[in-house]
Simulated assay, not measured.
Amino acid sequence: MNGSVHQKYINVVAIVPPPHNGMTAVSRKFVTELSSQFSTNEFLVSKPGFVRRELWPIYRQLAIFSKLIEALCKTKGPIYFVLDSNKGIWANLLLHLPLFMFSKRPLILHHHVFSYLNSRDARVGWISHLLGERAMHVVLCTCMQEKLQTLYPGARNAIAIGNARFLNIETTHRESAALNKLGFLGNISREKGVHVFMDTVRRLSVLGVTLEAEIAGPIADKSVWNDIEAFVNEAPDSRSYIGPVYGGDKDRFLAGVDVLLFPSEYSNEAQPVTIFEGIASGMPVLATNIGCIPEQLPKDWVFSRADFVEKAAHLLEEWCRMPAKFFAATQEASSRWRSEQSEAVLQYNDFVELVDAHLA
């Protein structure tokens, strides 16, 4: 148990790095923030090195189930828990929900995915209905909160806390007005939009604009690797794939790129940390209009999937012709990050007050 300001405690059951992704990184930092405000018992799950990638989903569910039982047996007080996605929601419904119902504990349920907010998922409906007033639902943005409460009337208690609150990134102001390099950063797959990125670079070439293009991130699908290799080989002097980047390598990647493209089609995409990392570094980010992204970025930088290649290419072509406009965009990126960070701090403070009152 960690010391606290309020001398009250929350029992945290969560997945933290590894694996390294936006959700686990935010979970780790959220737990750290909780422990600075409340006493916490931490029941954390990470991926051991001996667990193969394809076995991780099964291992993860068994580990969470075990940690949840341990938390309920050894402690009293509320449980903080992160709702899963896709097939993992079956575990939430069939394994975790009965334990929550039996224990009658207050719950803080953190939602990090958008897939069950695009359309109603009966499993989430049962979870929110049966937990009712006992659950406080934490979401990432206003539109998430609205959709959650519209689709799941049982989720009456909901509050938005942006991921920006949990990212310790200093704002960078760029001095250069030159647009020379585009970047793609993420877990590389078709769903994450790497092919849209490559098509946008090709469209720029047709428009007579040649920019460097650098792709960074892990690749699991061999067919995607083959497509990236072909893309690089079309113009090896200006295109590259540099593999996964973490820590200082990621910082150097972001510092060396002028515009980040984030044309994701991933159904779980909610409030991508990568976008915040981009704008915090003074870099415009062009993205698709899914999840919370329209609230993260200026509206002129957000496009539908169908329009992305054409509209992104024309905006980039304009920025190349008009350096003053591009420089203004870099300043807007930095300003947007400061605004998002300030709003998220206020949201988190409201959350602390609600939890504190609940535990009083």
Results as ranks from 00 to 15, higher is better:
Leu167Asp: 03
Arg165Ile: 00
Val194Ala: 09
Asp237Gln: 15
Ala216Trp: 03
Gly208Ser: 14
Val224Gly: 08
Arg203Met: 04
Arg190Ile: 11
Asp199Gly: 06
His195Tyr: 03
Phe197Leu: 11
Lys192Phe: 06
Val206Glu: 15
Ser176His: 12
Tyr241Ala: 02
Asp199Cys: 10
Lys192Glu: 10
Val206Arg: 13
Phe166Thr: 02
Ala230Leu: 14
Arg239Val: 05
Phe197Met: 10
Ala235Lys: 10
Ser189His: 09
Asn180Gln: 15
Ile228Glu: 11
Trp225Leu: 13
Asn226Val: 12
Gly186Asn: 08
Glu170Tyr: 05
Glu170Asp: 15
Gly256Asn: 15
Lys192Gly: 07
Arg174Cys: 13
Asp251Met: 03
Gly186Phe: 08
Thr171Ala: 12
Ser240Lys: 15
Phe184Cys: 02
Gly183Cys: 08
Gly183Phe: 08
Leu182Glu: 03
Leu182Asp: 03
Gly243Lys: 06
Ala164Trp: 05
Thr171Asp: 04
Glu191Met: 11
Ile169Asn: 07
Thr200His: 04
Lys222Ala: 09
Gly256His: 04
Arg165Gly: 02
Gly243Ala: 10
Val245Asn: 05
Gly186Val: 14
Glu175Ala: 14
Pro263Ile: 14
Val209Trp: 00
Trp225Lys: 13
Pro244Ser: 06
Ser205Asp: 15
Gly248Trp: 01
Ile219Arg: 04
